[in-house]
Design a protein around this nucleic acid. Structure first.
Lengths: 204, 204
DNA sequence: ATAGTATGTATGAACGCTCGTTCGTATATC
DNA sequence: GATATACGAACGAGCGTTCATACATACTAT
């Protein structure tokens, strides 16, 4: 395996790269096949159809082949196996996810496009078959750890998802705020530090 | 004032309602003028141009006329005037924002569309002139309150924004999770309760 | 009160353009 | 010579927008 890529493989990848860039900045319906062809090395439109049967097939390929779920789930499972208390788990998981997330910014944008313009159909297929089962297993293990308030398990996945998604979206919104951008370390401080410890320790 | 609305006013509002609905579910470029006309009482396309000069003008009108900034800023300023400590402020502000936010779900969706398909131009104009000055004033007042960790002021607006946005987006994502939806009270418990108090009190 | 008129609001048909896709064919690659 | 990949040209369909025109409403002059 790891065969040397054929000319077609390279073309396919170049098309996916270009399409991803355009989908993210213009949306799916705002991106034309001609624009993709132009951005993928100035090709002709017709050539795209040697690699993808339709425009939607390009989008589906991006969601299915370029998602970070395997990497993220592996880390989550690793953390869940090591943490001794629920707060430990949450803090470690946040640290890991906040590290991985920015490396897959493109995919998160694609997710939002799928939600907006396809009602989430594309992501839904991937999540239901490949992601949720493993997340549920992690939550189950988490149930046995001390330091967990009596909240239903889904709260945890939503809590983490909310923080991480908020982090990413806010970074984007930050464009409008006349403030400097914050570093990764500052974000970890804010979420896992200030939020979980400092504030409440001093609060009412 | 408060004149009785003319036939044109009613038509205009009906068009905006229909356009908002379609933009949210299909995106800006995924929504056609004909689809808007059809959804706005089965009108003819040409009639839309008696009320809006272009398709983009409809979107701009939605962002400019149907944003909740005045209401939200008034509440934020009210809370900031009453709170005696920074944690008090954060908790009260969260409670208020989580109450208001779901009532303006549509607008938050429009914001995301503007970010995606227009690079945020539309929202940017509104935010810079009408929103940021007032937010900065609140942050300034907050600086004088006890219980505030030595973080730069922008952290606070980002923190709140992150939580609120995450909450809204996660509610949307919840569609894919095989869990029940959570009530407003449960969310307040999770954010202002568990997050700020319970967890850290039991954590390391 | 009535007739006439200006104004606001609606319409169907059409224009030029771009869209996603297909076709026939040419050029690489093996 | 077979197969994979590329191309230019063309298709029908749908797009945003405009135009000429008709109906509804409100105001003015009689």
């Amino acid at each position: 395996m790891a065969e040397t890529p054929t000319r077609g493989d390279l073309a396919r990848a170049e098309i996916l790269d270009a399409a991803c860039r355009l989908f993210i900045t213009q949306g799916y319906h705002g991106t034309s096949m001609r624009a993709i062809a132009r951005a993928a090395g100035g090709r002709a439109v017709a050539g795209l159809y040697n690699h993808f049967s339709t425009k939607e097939a390009i989008f589906i390929a991006l969601i299915e082949e370029r998602n970070p779920y395997d990497e993220m789930l592996a880390l989550l499972e690793d953390v869940s196996g090591q943490a001794q208390t629920a707060p430990d788990f949450l803090r470690a998981a946040l640290e890991d996810l906040l590290t991985i997330m920015p490396q897959h910014y493109d995919f998160l944008q694609l997710v939002q496009i799928d939600l907006r313009e396809f009602g989430g159909r594309t992501l839904g297929r991937v999540a239901e078959t490949r992601v949720f089962p493993r997340v549920l297993a992690v939550i189950e293990r988490l149930q046995g750890l001390p330091g967990l308030k009596p909240l239903a398990p889904p709260v945890w996945i939503r809590l983490v998802a909310s923080l991480v998604i908020g982090y990413v979206v806010t970074e984007k919104l930050g464009f409008f705020a006349p403030f400097r951008q914050y570093t990764h370390d500052e974000w970890v401080t804010i979420f896992a530090g200030t939020l979980l410890n400092g504030l409440a320790a001093e609060g009412a």
